[in-house]
């Protein structure tokens, strides 16, 4: 099929340059005999990379079963420890007591509002961190002077627990939501900015060269080439930024107490400690863990998987 196309195109173009014309009949004949286009189709068929997605049953067995088993195991060990009276009831409540506390909260109607207070603060703070951290990362990555000036500080801030800012934030901003957001920002902005810087640093120079040859320079180059190429590192930074946001917020809620702040998970946990309600404390810890994991599973992990899979960067797609 392809071979007739080739010779057809040549016959139909008598006005072409002399040297190009295969007017030598023997050469044309020889070409037909040795034509490689059938070979090409064969090569394509042999070399094509087949990307398979795992069947749903396999996903259940490989991805869902192991974590469920682990959770069950923890519950069993916990219950055994309670039965063996490893510690006093007031220090080690049974899983059922914690479950009862959860049911009580649900019935009292404040469970969801406690979770929502924290989640809304956390997500809003994270979005603000995103809006600040992204241009910051871009500038640090691309402007050598700024990179030399604040790059090390930005990396250093990541190792400073943002709880350390709480006392200062309380004095500067007072006991209100601004303090919460300030602490979240100080925790998450460096992660997001550093993630973007790392992502940009790892962009192969070849992509930038290829971008320049097609005319993608300046802002167009940043938007169409640099940012998409840096996306894997950026998403990793977002993931870490969320973890830092959530941690900072919980720490801030534990420390700062005021009616203006509302009762979030951290505040709830601290209230339970003050009332020496160990089942409540356990429930608070578990809810904080659960919400952190849930946000990661619902938002960041799928995002990361999509970015990596669409580029063939996951082990399974090879």
């Amino acid at each position: 099929m392809a071979s007739t196309e080739t010779s057809g195109a040549k016959d139909a173009a008598p006005l072409e340059d002399e040297p190009r014309q295969a007017d030598d009949a023997a050469a044309v004949e020889r070409h037909k005999r040795h034509d490689l286009s059938g070979l090409e189709a064969g090569l394509d068929a042999l070399d094509a990379v087949v990307v398979k997605r795992a069947p749903i049953g396999q996903v259940l067995v490989k991805k869902v079963l192991p974590p469920i088993s682990a959770v069950l195991l923890v519950l069993v060990v916990w219950q055994l420890a309670v039965w063996a009276k490893v510690a006093d009831q007031t220090k080690l409540p049974s899983p059922s007591a914690v479950g009862q506390e959860l049911a009580d909260r649900w019935n009292a109607g404040d469970l969801l509002s406690i979770i929502w207070t924290s989640v809304s603060h956390g997500l809003l703070g994270f979005v603000a961190a995103l809006v600040i951290g992204t241009p910051l990362g871009l500038v640090v990555a691309r402007v050598p002077f700024i990179r030399a000036a604040i790059g090390p500080i930005l990396s250093g801030l990541q190792s400073l627990p943002s709880v350390a800012w709480v006392p200062a934030a309380v004095i500067w901003l007072g006991l209100n939501n601004s303090t919460m957001y300030a602490v979240i920002l100080l925790g998450a902005v460096p992660s997001i900015a550093n993630g973007l810087v790392a992502g940009i640093d790892q962009v192969p120079p070849l992509y930038l060269r290829a971008g320049r040859t097609i005319g993608a320079t300046g802002l167009r180059g940043a938007w169409f080439i640099l940012l998409p190429a840096a996306l894997p590192g950026y998403v990793a930074g977002l993931k870490q930024g969320w973890a830092f946001s959530w941690r900072s917020l919980m720490a801030a809620e534990l420390i700062a107490s005021s009616p203006d702040l509302g009762v979030g998970l951290g505040r709830y946990l601290e209230n339970m400690r003050e009332g020496s309600d160990m089942a409540g404390v356990f429930l608070g810890i578990l809810l904080i863990l659960f919400v952190g994991i849930a946000i990661d599973l619902i938002i960041f992990s799928p995002l990361e998987r999509w970015v990596l899979r669409s580029r063939g960067l996951t082990a399974r797609s090879q």
């Binding site: 090409e40 090569l43 394509d44 042999l46 094509a48 990379v49 990307v51 580029r311 063939g312």
Partner: peptide, 10 residues
Amino acid sequence: KRVHELSGGM
């Protein structure tokens, strides 16, 4: 097709 789904020649 994604780039990683193509062979070197493709």
